[in-house]
């Protein structure tokens, strides 16, 4: 058990559950929910890679001074990357949903299978 990183285990599990949902559900909204869950899983994996046990958040205050910051703080780079990835995730989810609304408006049903034959 000690050689398993528990947070990346959770992240990988969420990623797999999300992909399973995106691939197996016929309903478009459920597919997008699957993608959103997989997104959360990937973000957790990236943050967990930068986590070092027993260290503090990369923010200076009275308890953590600048001189030994590199010895007491976690890796800030994955956090900076995930910060922007979450915002983009919302924008991409909204874009997927507006495609779904648009498909619905064009007269199809909620099931993705009914779009196989359609000529756009």
């Amino acid at each position: 058990m000690s050689d398993v990183n528990i947070v990346t285990l959770i992240g990988v599990a969420l990623l797999l559950v999300g992909f399973y949902g995106a691939l197996s559900r016929p309903n478009v909204i459920k597919m997008i929910v699957g993608f959103a869950i997989a997104d959360t899983g990937v973000n957790m994996i990236i943050v967990a890679v930068g986590y070092l046990p027993g260290r503090t958040a990369p923010i200076l205050d009275s308890a953590a001074d600048a001189a030994n910051a590199a010895r007491t703080m976690v890796d800030p780079i994955p956090q900076a990357l995930v910060l922007t990835a979450i915002v983009i995730g919302l924008a991409v989810t909204a874009l997927m949903l507006s495609f779904a609304v648009r498909m619905r408006r064009s007269g199809g049903g909620m099931a993705i299978d009914s779009y196989g034959e359609q000529k756009w």
Partner: peptide, 27 residues
């Protein structure tokens, strides 16, 4: 818990509030 308060704030505000709202609006 992983020492990433910035990411936690973003995820709480976006992941649980705005994404859910966008889903509900589109529903």
């Amino acid at each position: 818990a992983l020492g990433a308060p910035d990411v936690a704030m973003t995820e709480a505000a976006i992941g649980s509030a705005l994404t859910t709202m966008v889903f509900l609006y589109s529903l």
